[in-house]
Computed example of a mutant assay.
Amino acid sequence: MKLPKLELSMQKKTCKPAMFGRLWHAGRRSLNLDHTPAHQFACSQWQTTLQPSTSYLIYRWLLFTGVLATGLASFACQRLPSRYEGPPVEINYFKWFIYFTNWGFMLIALQSGLALAVVIRYRSQKFFSTCCDDDDALMPRRPRTPLLCRAYWLAQNVATDLAFVITLIYWTLVHNPKIHDINALNLLVHGANSAVMVCELLVTAQPVRAAHALYGVGAGVAYGVFSAVYWALGGTDRFGLPAIYPALNWNQPGSAFGFVALCAVVLLVAHALATILAALRTRVASRLRPRPHADRLALPSH
């Protein structure tokens, strides 16, 4: 039996809003920072218990103190390069905050501090519970992930993407052997930053969602906007030049916009790499160390 043309047209009109509604809700669900079970943020992928292990707590303390000490040393030990031959320049320590490298390193310090706080919180609980697992059919709605865990997850996503991009862009486009010294501190902030975040991807238990690449891209675009505003207000780099980075010179807006767009693309690629590493980690862990709670600790749930 054929339906009248009027009924067919009405079905098409009602199907389109429903389809767009499902796509909108799916997009929001993939972009949010809720994850079950929440205690996964406090555990290592390689531990055998559900409660945060002592070895993982020690790892978190060592990482946080190391990153914090490196950041403080980077701020306190500012000096002109040994090969600098320009006019005399007075060091302005507060210009440390205008560089993208230091933005990325501050995010690493933030995420390592939040990760430590998450572990301490869950270890201090007297009754450790996993009542928010995916298979809990008695609860009509899952409780929201604690704000501390969501902040840590966001910081780790952005810090990971920025670390990869900072290392790549610095050694390919920014580093000038005639100006920049290659010393321990330079290697720590432009090389060890990525090594630390790779280690984090291999050790931690929380997943990496592909849609969260937008957060890293947003941070990169925010820095581009900051550099443009800083330039418009007459700000200079530590040598007194109008551009923070030669490639990000807003006196040439076309090349500056192109550099920001390039960084956004590289940030997407960096997040894709992080997603692949996290997926490989969970697969290897599930095969090498099978355990009764592997589905609760190793597999991501959305």
Score class of each variant (00 low, 15 high):
M1P: 09
K2G: 13
K2A: 14
L3Q: 02
K5Q: 05
L6E: 06
E7F: 04
E7S: 03
K13N: 02
K13P: 02
C15A: 12
C15N: 07
M19I: 10
L23H: 13
H25F: 14
G27N: 10
R28C: 13
H35S: 11
H35V: 06
H35M: 12
P37A: 00
P37D: 00
A38Y: 03
F41Y: 06
C43K: 11
L50F: 09
Q51R: 15
P52M: 02
S53R: 04
S53H: 08
W61M: 15
L63H: 14
T65S: 15
G66Y: 15
T70M: 12
G71E: 11
G71C: 12
A73M: 14
A73G: 13
Q78T: 04
Q78E: 10
P81R: 10
S82Q: 07
E85M: 13
P88D: 00
V89N: 02
V89G: 03
N92K: 08
W96T: 06
F97H: 09
N102T: 00
W103I: 01
F105R: 03
F105D: 05
M106K: 07
A109W: 08
L110A: 08
S112M: 01
A115G: 08
A115W: 01
V118A: 06
I120G: 01
Y122T: 03
R123C: 14
S124E: 15
K126R: 15
F128Q: 02
C131Y: 11
D136S: 08
D136I: 07
P140T: 00
P140H: 00
R142V: 05
P143M: 11
R144L: 08
L147C: 07
C149R: 03
Y152D: 12
W153H: 05
L154T: 00
A155P: 05
Q156L: 08
Q156N: 07
N157I: 06
V158K: 02
A159G: 15
A159T: 12
A159H: 15
D161W: 02
V165P: 14
T167V: 14
L168N: 03
W171S: 13
L173E: 00
V174Q: 11
V174P: 10
H175W: 10
N176R: 11
I182T: 11
I182A: 06
N183Q: 12
A184I: 11
L187A: 10
L188Y: 13
S194P: 09
T204K: 10
T204Q: 08
A211I: 05
V217K: 04
V217L: 07
V225M: 14
V225R: 13
S227R: 05
S227D: 12
A228Y: 12
A228K: 12
A228M: 14
A228E: 03
V229T: 01
V229S: 02
W231Y: 15
G234E: 02
D237F: 09
L241K: 15
P242Y: 05
I244C: 05
I244Y: 05
Y245P: 06
P246C: 05
A247N: 00
A247W: 01
L248R: 00
N249I: 08
P253V: 06
G254C: 12
F259V: 02
V260N: 04
A264W: 02
V265H: 04
V269M: 14
A274P: 10
A279R: 08
L280T: 09
R281I: 09
R281Q: 12
S286D: 14
L288H: 13
R291A: 09
P292Q: 03
H293C: 12
A294N: 09
D295I: 07
L297I: 07
L297T: 09
H302R: 09
H302S: 10
